[in-house]
Simulated scan of single mutants.
Amino acid sequence: MITVVIFEYLSEDGLRDVRRTRDLTSADMGRFGPSWGRDAAGLLHDQWMVEDRGPGYYRVRMQEERGVHVRLLAEAGERREDPGGMTTSLTLLVTAVRAHAKQHYTVVGGWDVVVECWEDRQIVDVLAEERVTTVEEAIAVFASLVSVWAGRQAGAENSAF
């Protein structure tokens, strides 16, 4: 069994970089064992985010590897943004999602929820989690959410009678 730490970086343009891996020694195992999650977050900041590669998603995973069997021990991730709060590409994607939602506000049920209830930060969180890089992907991700809300709205309207 090998225990490794894998540092990954996903830039705003969608390129993924596995920066480095290292085997944990038995001393490390004894030290990390009781607090995997906290220590993964510490490694993320101490050994990965200090080497700032710019806006993007930084992640560290601790896992045991035994042949083809992999057991995740801990994972931590964090998005680093530009000083303005959002990267240019994310700002454009949020703007595109909002514009599409406003355009379909009364035409297709559910998009009104995006217009009325979602803040930009929440839209960014969904786009970042789904690792969306294009306008088409952003609209598709929210279309799937909107279809759920549209179904709920229709159900509520039908049950009123």
Rank of each mutant, 00 (worst) to 15 (best):
Q63A: 14
T88K: 12
T106K: 11
A27I: 12
T88Y: 09
E51F: 12
D82T: 15
D125F: 07
G56I: 08
H100M: 02
P83H: 07
V68L: 10
W118R: 12
L73N: 01
Q153I: 14
S159V: 08
M86W: 10
D112P: 06
E137L: 02
Q153K: 15
Q103C: 10
V108D: 10
V141R: 11
E129K: 12
W48N: 01
V4P: 01
S89D: 12
I139P: 05
E136M: 04
V108E: 15
F32Q: 01
L24D: 06
D28L: 04
Q122I: 03
V5R: 08
R20T: 11
T88A: 15
A96Y: 02
Q153F: 06
H45Q: 11
V126W: 10
E64V: 06
N158A: 15
L43Q: 05
Q47A: 10
A41S: 07
G54P: 05
A150V: 07
V107M: 10
N158G: 04
V50D: 09
H100I: 03
Y9S: 00
V141Q: 08
V113S: 05
A140W: 00
L127Y: 05
D17K: 09
E12S: 03
E75D: 12
I139Y: 02
V108T: 13
D82E: 15
A128H: 03
G151Y: 06
E64W: 03
R121Q: 13
L72C: 01
L72H: 02
V132S: 09
Q103T: 11
Y58D: 03
P34N: 07
T21H: 07
T3N: 11
A154V: 13
V114T: 06
L72K: 08
L72T: 14
D112R: 15
E78Q: 15
L10A: 03
E157V: 14
Y105D: 10
R31N: 09
W111C: 10
V132N: 01
W118K: 10
V146G: 10
G109N: 14
Y105K: 15
I139F: 02
G85P: 05
A143V: 00
D46Q: 14
A96N: 04
H45D: 13
R79C: 04
A74P: 08
L44A: 01
V148H: 13
E136I: 09
G110D: 08
A156C: 06
G85R: 08
G85M: 09
S89I: 12
F142L: 12
E81P: 04
